[in-house]
Structures are given as C-alpha cells and as structure tokens.
Design a protein around this nucleic acid. Sequence first.
DNA 1: CACTAGCAATGTCAAGTTATGAGTGCTAAT
DNA 2: ATTAGCACTCATAACTTGACATTGCTAGTG
Lengths: 333, 333
Amino acid sequence: MLGDRQKSILKSIVEEYIKTARPVGSKSLCKRFKVSSATIRNDMLILEQMGYLEKQHISSGRIPSEKGYRYYVDNLMEPKKISGEDMLKLEKIFQNNSLTLNDAIEKSLEIISDITNYTAVILGSASRDNLLTKVEIIPLNDNNVVAILITDKGHVENKQISLNETVDTKEVQKTSELLNKMLVGTPLDEVPSRLEFEIKPIIGNYVKNYEVLYNAFYEALSSFQDDRVIHWGGKTNILKQPEFNTVDDVKNIISKFESKDMVSKIEETEDEVKVYIGKETEFDDNVTVVKTKYNTGKNEGTLAIIGPKRMDYERVLNLLEYIKENIEKKGNL
Amino acid sequence: MLGDRQKSILKSIVEEYIKTARPVGSKSLCKRFKVSSATIRNDMLILEQMGYLEKQHISSGRIPSEKGYRYYVDNLMEPKKISGEDMLKLEKIFQNNSLTLNDAIEKSLEIISDITNYTAVILGSASRDNLLTKVEIIPLNDNNVVAILITDKGHVENKQISLNETVDTKEVQKTSELLNKMLVGTPLDEVPSRLEFEIKPIIGNYVKNYEVLYNAFYEALSSFQDDRVIHWGGKTNILKQPEFNTVDDVKNIISKFESKDMVSKIEETEDEVKVYIGKETEFDDNVTVVKTKYNTGKNEGTLAIIGPKRMDYERVLNLLEYIKENIEKKGNL
DNA sequence: CACTAGCAATGTCAAGTTATGAGTGCTAAT
DNA sequence: ATTAGCACTCATAACTTGACATTGCTAGTG
C-alpha cells in the first residue's frame, strides 16, 4: 500500500514532530531523502489522502494524525535499548531487596515520570482480585470502633464505625470472630452480598443486640468496594507539554485527572504493554496512554504513562516493558 | 479616619466586585449614594491614597486591595444568617447519628465546596496529636508482613514490610507484643525515637534474629511520620473562578495544591475561624483561605476553604463557623 | 514515468493602526 | 462640600500590513 519512501517519510515526520512539536514542512526533509521538496510534497499529499497526516491550516507543514501515530507505533518505530543512564536509576530500585514490591513499583514509576516529563499512574489491584485475609475490629471508646480489612495482597482498608448505642465489647468481639470465620478468603467485592445472605440470617444466634452491629458493619464493609489505591508520579508533568497551552486544555485535563471515573478509564486488563492514542484512550482525546497490567501472582494492578499524543513512544514503551518485567521478576521471588 | 460615606463606598465596591469580578466605576455608585460621580471619585481617590483600593490601569474602575478586603472583613461586613436552603443540606448531615464524625466532616465540607464553588480541604490531626493505641502485625506470606498502627483518634496507618530472610512467625509475634507493650500511648511522632532509644537496646533479649525485624520495623514506623489525611472537596472548583484565566495562573495553583508543603501551609493552629487574604496566606498570593482548627477532645484537625480573594466572605465565614460548631457538638456527645 | 523547478495561492504571525468606550483627575463654578 | 464639564489615558476589538512558510499545481526534463 505504502511505498518504501512514503513509509520512511511518515516515520521522519512523526519523529521530527515528537521532537519539536512543530509541523514538518517538505523542505526540511529534502536533504535526508536527496530529492526535491516537490517530490516530498507529492508523497505527503498521498499520505494525507490516506489519513496518516494532517495539516493545521492550508499552508502549514504536516503533523501526524492519530492514524499516523498508530501506523508508526505498529509498523515503523524501532525498539531502542534503554539508555545506560536510565537503566542505572531503575536497576538501583530493583536490586534493593529491602524495598517491598509496592515501594519498588512506586519508586520506579516516579523515576519514569521524572525522566520523561510525562505523568505516571499506578492503580492497585481491583477489589475483586483481593481476598479478605483478616478482619480486625478495634474499639476506640464507648461508641466508636475501627474496622480493618487486610487482604492477601497486603492491601489494608479501614473505616471508623459509630455505634448509636453503647454495645458490650464482648458482643463486638463475637461479631468480629464471626466475620472472620465466615468471610476470610472472600473476594472483597463479594463481601457485601455474603454479609447479607450468609451472615445476616445467623448473626442473631451468636450476638445480642445484633441489629446495631450488623447495620454498622454492613455500611462500613460496603464502602470499601470501589476504594482503590492510586499513586501518581509527576501529576502535573503533562502540563509542561506545549500542547497544553490554553486555559481550557489545562482545566480540562486536570478535571479528568480528578474525576471519579478516571480509575475505570485507565485500568488495563491486557497483559502486555499497550498503546492507546487520542480517542482510543476513551479518557481524553489529547493524550496518549501507554499502559499494562502487571501480575506477580501475589499482586496485580495497572501501570500507566499519560503524555501527549506526540509521545516518545520508543522510549516509553521500552521503559514500561522493562519495569513490568522487573516487577514480575521481583514479585515471583 | 474614614468618613461614614467613605466606609460605605468601600463596602459597596468590595461587594460589587465580589459579585461581578469587574472593576467598579464611580458612575455605577451615583444612584445608591445620591451624589454625583465626581463626589464618589473624590472619595475613591482618598480610599486609594490610603491603600484600600487599587486600579488595574489609569482609566479603569477601582478594585479592592488586600488591605481593602482586610478592612472589609474586620469592620464592614455584616454577618448574614445561613440561607434556609444551605442550612437544610447541612442539618441533614449532622442529624444523621449513624455517620461517624469523620464522615460528617467530609460530607459537610463537600457540600460547602459545592454550594460556594470554592475548594474545601480537611487536614486530619497531625501525628503529634495522635497517640498510638495498637500495633498489629499481620503475616501475609514467608517474606511479607503488614504493620498496622491504630491511634486513639481512629486513624489507621499501614505499611507492608518485606523481610529479607524468612523469619519465624513466633518471632514476629514476640516483636509485635513487645512493640505494643512499650509503645501504646506514645504520640505518633515520638515513635521513631522511642524505637531507637528504648526498644533497640532490649529487643535482643526477647527476639532472636532481631536485627532484621528491628530494621524493617524502624523503617516502616518512621515512614508514618508525615502522613496526614487530606480530604479535598471540589479540588478543581477554584479553576472556575474568572481570576484563573491564564495558563500560568492555573498551572501555578494546581502545582501548589500538589506540592508537599501544602499541608504545613494550610494547617491552622488558631481555634477560631480566621481569614487569610492574598499574601497573608503564605500559600498563594491570588487566593484567600478561610480556615479554622476544630477540636472535639477526641479528634482534631483543620478545615479550610480556598477561593479567590474576591470571596463571598460573609457567606463562607458563617458556613465554616456553623460547621465547626456542629462538629464540636457532635464530637462531644 | 518519476522527478523537478517555478510560481501563484493561502494561511499564520507579529506589529502597527484605528475607533470606541469606560473611567479617571482636575478645574472652575455653585 | 459638591458638581458639571472636559481633556486625558488606557483597554479592547477590529482591521491592515508585510514577512514568512508552505502548499498545490503546472509545465517541463531525463
């Protein structure tokens, strides 16, 4: 479909635009291809007609379209090795055995956001993937207790509970034992339904005054559902990119970062490093998201890099690939 | 110092500017004061010379200076009662007894941010004010445990710990018991030093292989130090204000919201509702922060509203006052 | 047939121009 | 003490201009 030179021109334009953020004109490519600018222009025209390039206005140079970036990522870019400098910073983290996996993940993504100037996000594992390991109920004073849930991934959730009436500590204790006996091993997102259908019918047999306690716990344990650890690296880095040069663009992306459905839009289910460009992200048309699920057996979640569509794909893909591998290696020890 | 009409003119200008965000000209005040625009201008000139008013350029109307807002807040504004509508929304929260104090605080500040379109912040109590109530150590697998700290205010912190070598569960258990015996009742910020000077010298008597455990716990418990619960309401609300109409202003305030010393800049030590305008905030020259410490005996922290200097002071002050009172009433039950 | 030289056409951008309107400061009169 | 009147200043928006970059097209060339 595309001639060799056309592919090569597309590649050059994408890479030049990634570097400079300015539309690329035909003249600037003459030397590299040893043809006249008119020839380049002819090829550019074809590339534009096929949807790989765009113009900002009739007499501007060309910039890659989303289709163009996609073609570049899928067919043209050449994997570069991670630079020695970058490698050094990351190796330090993964060779430090006293860091927990979570700490290593957070630190490495912070480094990526630092060296790339993009924004990095880590989403902890979804509640459906966490099995309840222990429920702890700790009394604070007459009316208040703290409920703590610990999951098999080491994730901890807590919620303070206010009991309308003073309840005997022993009853609280019994409830706690019952919950542990019945709920350990349950995926976090099934806790509410098991509370309702398995605990509720029998709790009266064990615990006096059970209604107060049951209601309080039901509300507390249900509220964990959509809680999710989010860790940001370089949250405002993306604002440094020249594409965010209007007030509206900046406000818009910041609002999206703070919005409630950000988690669901960013979460990745695929096991490899994937690239989503512009509309493909379903998050924001102006950005590219490179992301992957990591899974160490004990622990899983999503790693994501958010940057402009004009992203340094070769570099970011390799960095993320490298980190994913090292996380999974470390996690399997 | 200031004549009655001059005070009244200042009040009008502040209130008009709060409402419209546009400089106020002399003509627009003629009707209200039944004098000519020239007379108003003469007074404006005096107010400007005394530092209460400013001009954006030589032929613009006047806007209040920081000193002008300060004078308005201290001397001119008249406390308005909270509107019935606002009151209704807030009462619902404080009359719901099954909400914990923390939930009530969060919900009420979210409502304030909603109805005012400013940004609300809640800072949980500082670690120095939290006494350790319990340390829980929960094993996940051979190499990993979760350490959980519970404080008397119901605040929970947790940290996963990776042990380089496999350690006998019994030893972990003993360490946990020792930590509880020695540390319960300690303010959170004194935990590290007590670990070092009281636990370290004796832990060897109780626990085999204590070095691995001690080091891991030291690192984990020290990392809690500056952790602090921050809860935002309407974090991006402030961007809706017309004063944030350049890219730089938006980037600047967002960066400040994300910065590490945000907590220390916002924390309030005074027990009443206080107003900090512009430079007085020591946080950002373009904003006003209205804030107060709340203290229920069991629980304390800071409530803050961040908005433009052109803030609806009468309303915000009363809302915050109302919430503070209700929090403390509820907390003392 | 692939390539090229040349050129008119079209757009951005920055700088300069103009007209309009809002609002001030000052002065002389009441 | 207050006012009417006027010259003055400045922001803003609309328009103009010239410099520049780049394109699409056409007529040629090897």
